[in-house]
């Protein structure tokens, strides 16, 4: 596999997905650092894994489920008290622009 490189534009795109902003100098620095790290990642391509199943979790537990019983923990007020801004029982955020979000 060819060496993975990441361009400055790609770094900027990923930053957008992650809701992070970088100035030009930071963007340059991150591009270099991420490229270095991706080079380490590239060593994985040495390993043949065609017939290997991925492992996403090592929990031995299956079917740990909760019965469908409602239980209100009564945390509303404490939750709202911790919010940076709240009013009338609602969390307050700056205006959401049309077309933002999902």
């Amino acid at each position: 596999m060819a060496e993975t490189t990441i361009t400055r534009d790609e770094v900027a795109h990923v930053a957008g997905l992650a809701k992070l902003a970088f100035n030009d100098a930071e963007l340059d620095q991150f591009t270099t650092q991420l490229s270095d790290i991706l080079n380490i990642f590239d060593t994985l391509s040495e390993v043949g894994t065609d017939n290997v199943d991925p492992t996403y979790s090592v929990t031995e537990t299956v079917n740990h489920l909760r019965d469908d019983v409602a239980d209100n923990w009564g945390q509303k007020q404490e939750l709202l008290d911790n919010a940076p801004l709240a009013a009338a029982g609602l969390i307050k955020v700056p205006a959401i622009l049309d077309g933002e979000g999902e």
Partner: peptide
Amino acid sequence: VRYGFRADDVKNLEDLYVKTRS
């Protein structure tokens, strides 16, 4: 949005996310 640090001087939601996290 719900707890912890929130950046000041944000114009809109996107700005809130990006500034708070950055």
